[in-house]
Simulated scan of single mutants.
Amino acid sequence: MTELVVLCGTEPDGVERTITRMRELDPGVVVLHHDLRDLGRGVVHRRLRDAGRDERTVLELAHGCVSCTIREDVLPTLAALAGTVDRVVLHLDPRLEPEPVCWALGAVVFEPPGGGEACTATDLVDLRGVVAVLDPDHWLDDATGDATLPERGLSTLPDDERTVAQLAVGQAEFADVLVLTHAVGPGGADRTAAVLDRLCPTAPRLLAGRADHRVFCDGLDPASRRGVPGGVHDPLLRGTPPLDADSGVRTLLFSARRPFHPDRLHDAIDSLLDGVVRARGRVWLATRPGAVLWVESAGGGMRIGHAGDWLAGAAEQ
Score class of each variant (00 low, 15 high):
M1P: 11
M1N: 07
M1Q: 10
C8Y: 01
T10R: 06
R17Q: 15
T20V: 02
E24N: 01
P27R: 00
P27A: 12
L36Q: 06
V43Q: 10
R47I: 01
R47D: 06
A51D: 11
A51P: 00
E55D: 12
A62M: 01
H63F: 06
H63V: 04
C65G: 14
S67K: 08
S67N: 12
C68D: 12
T69N: 15
T69E: 14
R71Y: 14
D73V: 00
V74E: 06
V74A: 02
L75T: 04
L81P: 03
A82I: 03
D86T: 03
V88G: 03
L90D: 02
L92V: 01
D93V: 01
V101K: 06
C102A: 12
C102Q: 11
W103M: 13
A104T: 07
V108T: 13
V108D: 14
V109G: 08
F110Y: 06
F110T: 06
G115H: 11
G116Y: 03
G116R: 02
A118P: 14
T122S: 09
D123A: 07
L124I: 05
D126M: 05
A132H: 02
W139N: 03
L149Q: 06
L149D: 10
R152I: 01
L154F: 15
S155D: 13
S155R: 10
L157K: 00
R162Q: 14
R162F: 08
V164Y: 07
L167Y: 06
A168S: 15
G170M: 10
Q171W: 04
E173R: 15
F174H: 13
D176R: 10
D176K: 07
A183I: 00
G188W: 03
D190P: 01
A194Y: 05
L196S: 09
D197L: 08
D197C: 07
R198K: 13
P201F: 07
T202W: 03
P204W: 04
L207I: 04
A208E: 11
G209L: 08
H213N: 11
F216D: 04
G219Y: 13
D221E: 07
P222Q: 05
R225E: 10
R225S: 05
R225I: 08
R226V: 09
V228S: 14
G230W: 10
D234A: 15
P235N: 08
G239S: 09
T240C: 04
T240L: 05
P242M: 05
D244G: 13
S247H: 15
R250S: 15
T251Y: 00
L252R: 15
L253M: 10
F254D: 13
A256P: 01
F260H: 12
D263L: 14
D267N: 12
L272D: 12
D274I: 00
A279K: 01
G281L: 07
W284G: 10
A286S: 14
A298I: 04
G299F: 08
G301W: 05
R303C: 15
I304E: 03
A307I: 02
D309S: 13
W310M: 11
W310I: 02
W310C: 09
A314K: 04
